[in-house]
Structure formats: C-alpha cells, structure tokens
Design a binder for these strands. Structure first.
Length: 725
DNA sequence: ATGCCCACGATTTTT
DNA sequence: TCGTGGGCAT
C-alpha cells in the first residue's frame, strides 16, 4: 500500500494507527513488525504515540531509522561478513581522517584529490549498492576514486569499522547473499512500514524489498513533493515507480491539510506546481481566512535580520505568543550567524539546530575516541586521535611506526600496549609515553565488564590524564570543555536508565554494564543528530536549515534569504532536477507554517567577509505571484524596526511593489554590469550574472554559464557583451 | 616533536 | 571569516 500524504495531512497518525491496528485487531506480534523512519526523533514520536494508543503491547516492535535497524541486524550477524560484532561506526569526520591518511600514503595531494569529493563519490556508489569491485569508473577522477575506494574499504575492514552507508549496504548484502539470514528476516517481518518513502535510496529500496519478500506487506507513506535528499542519493523514482513496482498495491491520497491556513497552502502550491516530476495532488484546508503570506525585501542582510527579529518581538507582544512559536528557516548554515547576533543584541532567546553539534566538539570526540579504542582495539583512527592527548611525544612518525609494527605482527592496540617496549625504532621519550598511555588504558580494560559506560568513561579520562591536558588550555576553553565532558558522562548515565526502561530500540537485551553496554552507548551516540534532541518544550526561537525543518511545524515561520544563488542555491541553477529539488525544499519550508508565513530577502549581502554585493530576488517569490503576497515596504527611517501594525488584511500594504525597478536602484549606476543580466562571453557563451563584487579598483562578476557553470571574471577584462533577455 | 606563522581556499543540505 | 596545511625555527 502506498499512502501519498501531503504536508500536514497527518501521516504520523496514519502510521501509528496502522501499527496499533495490526497489533490490537489483527493480533500480529510486535516482534514481527518493522517500522522504518528517517530520523530518531520520528521513530521516538511514533513509538510514543503508538504507546498512547495501545500501551505496553508495542514492546518488542522494531521501530527505528534505516541506519539503526541495519546496525542492529549487523551486530547480530557481523561475523558472517567477516567483521567482529564490536565494529565501530565511522562518521564523516572519521571517514575524512581515513581517506586523508590513504592519500598521504599514496603521495596524493588533498588539493587535487579533495577528500570530500572522493567520499561523496564513494558514498554514491555505496547507495547504489556498488562495492569496490563493482564500481566502474567513467572519467579520470572516477578512476582514481575506484582505486581509493578499494583501499578505503579494505582499511575500514581492517579497522573493524563501517561507515554510515555500510550500515545499509552491508545489511542488504547480508540478506541477499546469505539466504538463511535473508529468509529468517523475511519470514519474521509480517509487516514492513516505511515513513518518508520519497527519501529512500536504491540500497534502502532493495533492503525494504528483501525484508518483505515473503509476506509482501509493504506500507509506504511519503510525498514526492517533499523529496529533498536527492543529493544524498535518495531516488524520488522509488515513489514515482511504486505502482509499477508493486502492481498489486493500493494507492491512497491524503489531501486534507490540518496544519496551515489557506493562504499559506495556496502560496506553497503555486511554487510546487512549477515542477514537472510530481504526483499531482492539491492540498485543501478548513482553516480558511488566515493572514496573507508576507514578503519583505530588506535593503541589506543586516536589515533583514533586524526586521525578522523585531517582527518576532512584535508578534510575541501583540499576539501573546511564546518564543517557541517562532522558527527562522535558512538555506545554509552560514546564514545563521547574522540572525544569531541580532537575536543576541535584542535579548531574544533562541537556539540553533544542527550547526556544530555536541558530538562534534573536540573534547567530546576525544572522549568518544577513547571509548572506541576500549571497545574496538582495531580502530586506529581513534587510536591516532587520542594517543597523543595529552602530549606524550608521540607524533605522526612514531604513530606510523607503532601502527606498522602492529600490522606486521597482527596485533591490535590492546596487545601492543600490553607490551609497549616491543615496538622497535622508538626513542626513549616515545617509549615512555607509549608505556604511560598503555598503563592507563589497560587499568581501565581490566574491569570493563563490571562497569557502566559512564564509569568506564570517567575511569578512562582519569587514567589517560585527559583532565591534565585540559589544564594546559586557556581557562575559558578548559572550563567549557570540562563542562561538556560532564554532560557526556551524564548522558552515558541517562543511557543506562533508558536501556532499563526499554526506550532504546534493539537494546532490550543489553546489560547495563560491560562491553555490550559500551557498544550500545557508542552506537546510540553515532546515530543521533541535533534535530533528534530538539525539544518543543523549550521556550526559544528556533533557528534551523530548511532541510532540518522537515517533519517539524511552527505557528510562525520566517524564511530568509530568498535570493537567486542562495535560494535556489547557485549549484542547482544548471540542472533542472536540482532546481526542482530546491523548489521542493521551498515547499517543505512554507508548509511548516501553521498561522503565519513571512518570507524575506536582502538587496545586498556579503559572502565570507567580502564586500556586500547586490542580489536578485528569488524566482520563488515570482512564482508565488504578487497577488498572493502582502509586500512590506522598507521605510527609510525605521526600516529596521516595525512593520506596519495594521497588516492583518494587507490593507495598508503595497501589494504590488515594483520589485524590478527596486533592483535597478540598488546597484550603483557607475557599475557597467548588474546581477541578473544575461550576457555572452566570447569563449564560454551565454550566461547570467548572479553576483557583482566591487573590489578596490575592479569589479568581479560571478556568472552562471549555460555550458561552463559558475565562473568569476573581472569585468574590465572579460570579453563580455550584453544579451537581450 | 612541537609550536608558530603565513597563505590559501572554501563554504549546501546530513542519516 | 575561519580552519587548515605547509614551512620553518626551536
């Protein structure tokens, strides 16, 4: 069954009621039901709401993210793939470390072979279920990637580690290549429910098929208009093809929206209908007669931020709204800085979702590396990270010696540390340093089985003198790092409590101490994100990217930076599929709003501390159309302050502000070229100016060429001519 | 091995 | 603007 569930149409409700129905009415055992979501938050919410319906009877049900479910199955069957069940999970930072080490060994420069580009390509291959042996390189770049992929995967295996994509890919492989295991799970799972089906990639699609091979009960819920993870390998085709994929399936559409007022829905629909690849549906609501969608074009990015924050203050005051009613959505994290500063100035309480996450902080990563070395002695990425903190005189050269010695003799780090003097070629300070580290760690290892994750963490930090290391830092840094480490310890304590209460899916059978508990804790940490920890209850304005806003809703939503090149993002301008994804992103953002939606742009904005340059208002604003937008005029004296108070019916608003003329005013007349103009370059052909940057004595133009993509040229020298638009 | 300075380049979104 | 990698002195 496929349920095409429009934004705000109650898909979580459908899913939870279906689960409750299966267990309660159809008497399916919860153990035999698999429900897959994309975020832990969604999984938690589904579990809670289902519990509210049928109480304890959901115990044992498989609810989790793709990665979480994959992990759980892989832990149980790791040996069948040649891994040990204590394998580590490598996040992007670990992956980068690993690929950089490989590049270094092969004397390849990171400039020429950018680690992120390589990892992206490997990730795409994995999402297509292509292993190192199956990967067929197309161009020169991919030939190198193919080589690196082989080494990268070999190294992961040696380190007993998997990256995020492996959690899906290897699970699928496990089920397909080992018929006994595949049949076991396919027999077991009588019902497979999938949330956000439009965001599945090929590997996930195959995994779902493998799970449901025998009972053939797939219940997929999704919305092709909300597919925003194409860049991460999600294949919108999965949902578009559902009918032909499963000819015996029933399809339902949910088109009533229970969230937003009708102006918001209509504006959103005007955007999304510009897309070609979609399953037609039109949302309707009983919430007629809401406030019009507001558009405000600020003179500058600073003014835009001030407008947003003062508008929030005004609405909070006039409509007696708590801060938590408001969300500010932006395309890129970089945009959060200005808004953050402005909130700060005005003492408006806020929180930023998803920037530098808790688990990305140096000290937290250090501490987790320590635990990972304890849990999985083959994880050399973690060994290399932690072994010299605090300084023990063991730099890169010594590290290589130690690791080479270990590899040559088939030893893991625990075994090396038991006998540190056996490592050849080290000088005295290095030998002493290694021995010191070894003594500390081994003392912790001895009673891992009798200790909880929190106790192990505390003991380990003590044993390797980590606190001393913090002492050497600036007092302020040192203080906040201690704070964070205490928080990490507290979260480890909380983890044990959660396990006991059965709140950690797949960890019901885990003890509260020892190696198993430690691994479970590390797993949990590896898969959580900032959005997962978001709590509605805190009374703060929420700042977040459009992507992380998916699945959330707010009474008042601000979408900022509606400018060509920013949103839609410059990298999407060349490809129509990418542009359509931007459009869906816009749709997702708009449909987060319950009562009020305010969209803004700035006439000038600076990137990376450069001089501000003029911008072009986003095409999305045009697509909504002036008749649907209440446009606020910036007022000279107080443009940074309040919008008109009586905007309710849009009566006092300039509803058809002459945008195009305004743009002309913005760029200084002495500049020959303007952003937005169509031009022809003698070599690169036709393109459109998207940025115009004044330097000391020249003008730099950023141009998207039809054939060449994004280029930057100096206006005085570039062979450019104007083209009629 | 370590620490400091300088130049450089990148900035989309994240389970 | 910021983080980082390379070069160089200690």
């Amino acid at each position: 069954m496929l349920v095409l569930a429009g934004a705000g149409s109650g898909k979580t409700r459908v899913l939870t009621h279906r689960l409750a129905y299966l267990i309660h009415r159809r008497e399916v055992h919860p153990n035999d039901i698999l429900a897959i979501t994309f975020t832990n938050k969604a999984a938690r919410e589904m579990r809670e709401r289902c519990e509210a319906l049928i109480g304890d009877s959901i115990r044992g049900m498989w609810i989790g993210t793709f990665h979480g479910i994959g992990l759980r199955i892989l832990r149980l069957n790791a040996e069948r793939l040649g891994y040990s069940s204590s394998f580590a999970i490598f996040d992007r930072a670990d992956q980068q470390r690993l690929i950089k080490d490989i590049l270094k060994e092969q004397n390849l420069s990171e400039k020429q072979w950018q680690p992120n580009a390589i990892l992206d390509r490997i990730s795409r291959a994995k999402n297509d279920l292509l292993g190192p042996a199956d990967f067929k390189p197309g161009d020169y770049f991919e030939q190198k990637v193919a080589d690196l992929y082989v080494d990268y995967q070999k190294r992961l295996f040696e380190y007993n580690a998997m990256d995020f994509d492996d959690l899906i890919r290897l699970t699928t492989h496990l089920l397909l290549a080992h018929p006994d295991i595949g049949t076991h799970y396919a027999e077991k799972f009588q019902h497979v429910l999938v949330d956000e089906y439009q965001d599945t990639n090929h590997a996930q699609y195959r995994l779902i098929k493998a799970f449901s091979k025998i009972h053939r009960n797939i219940f997929a819920v999704g919305d092709s208009d909300q597919s925003i993870y194409g860049w991460r390998g999600a294949d919108i085709g999965n949902i578009l093809r559902f009918e032909s994929d499963f000819p015996e399936a029933d399809i339902y559409k949910l088109e009533q929206n229970y969230r937003s007022t009708s102006p918001i829905l209509e504006a959103a629909h005007r955007i999304i209908r510009h897309n070609a690849a979609r399953q037609e549906k039109e949302l309707w609501t009983r919430r007629d007669g809401g406030d019009p969608v507001i558009f405000y074009h600020a003179p500058s990015a600073e003014m835009e931020a001030r407008f947003v924050v003062s508008y929030i203050e005004q609405l909070a005051r006039e409509e007696n709204r708590p801060w938590s009613d408001f969300a500010i959505l932006y395309r890129t994290h970089a945009q959060s800085r200005l808004l953050e500063m402005t909130c700060h100035e005005r003492s408006v309480p806020f929180r930023i979702l998803g920037s530098v996450g808790f688990y990305d902080r140096t000290e937290v990563r250090d501490a987790l590396s320590l635990l990972r070395v304890i849990a999985n002695p083959q994880d050399w990425v973690s060994v290399r990270r932690i072994i010299n903190r605090p300084k023990r005189g063991i730099g890169p050269a010594s590290l290589d010696k130690i690791q080479q010695f270990a590899e040559a003799n088939g030893l893991n780090i625990h075994e090396v540390l038991a006998n540190p003097e056996s490592v050849p070629g080290l000088n005295k300070p290095q030998r002493l340093g290694l021995a010191r580290f070894g003594q500390g760690l081994i003392s912790v290892l001895q009673d891992v089985q009798q200790r909880s994750p929190a106790e192990i963490l505390e003991a380990a930090l003590d044993a390797v003198d980590y606190w001393t290391y913090l002492d050497e830092l600036e007092p302020i840094t040192s203080f906040s790092r201690r704070d964070n480490l205490r928080e990490l310890i507290a979260s480890a304590q909380q983890f044990v409590v959660d396990v006991r209460r059965g709140l950690i899916p797949g960890a019901e059978d885990i003890e509260s101490q020892g190696q198993g508990a430690l691994l479970a804790f590390l797993n949990g940490v590896a898969l959580v994100t900032d959005v997962d920890t978001y709590e509605e209850s805190e009374n703060q304005v929420t700042l977040l990217t459009l992507h992380s806003a998916k699945g959330l809703e707010f009474p008042v939503v601000f979408m900022v930076g509606l400018e060509e090149g920013l949103f839609p993002h410059a990298r999407s301008l060349l490809e129509s599929t990418a542009l359509e994804e931007e459009r869906r992103l816009c749709y997702v953002g708009m449909t987060r709003a319950e009562d009020r939606l305010i969209m803004t742009s700035a006439a000038s904005r600076s990137y990376y501390g450069e001089y501000p340059s003029p911008t072009v208002i986003s095409r999305f604003i045009d697509e909504i159309g002036e008749d649907m937008l209440a446009e606020l005029e910036p007022r000279e004296s107080e443009s940074c302050l309040m919008p008109p108070a009586d905007h309710k019916l849009g009566a006092s608003l300039n509803r058809s502000a002459p945008k195009k003329e305004k743009q002309k005013e913005m760029s200084a007349p002495k500049v020959k070229w303007q952003a937005g103009e169509k031009v022809r370059h003698r070599v690169w052909g036709e393109g459109r100016i998207v940025g115009c940057q004044r330097r000391e004595d020249d003008v730099e133009l950023t141009i998207v060429f039809d054939s060449e993509g994004l280029k930057t040229v100096v206006a005085d020298y570039a062979p450019l001519e104007q083209v009629k638009d």
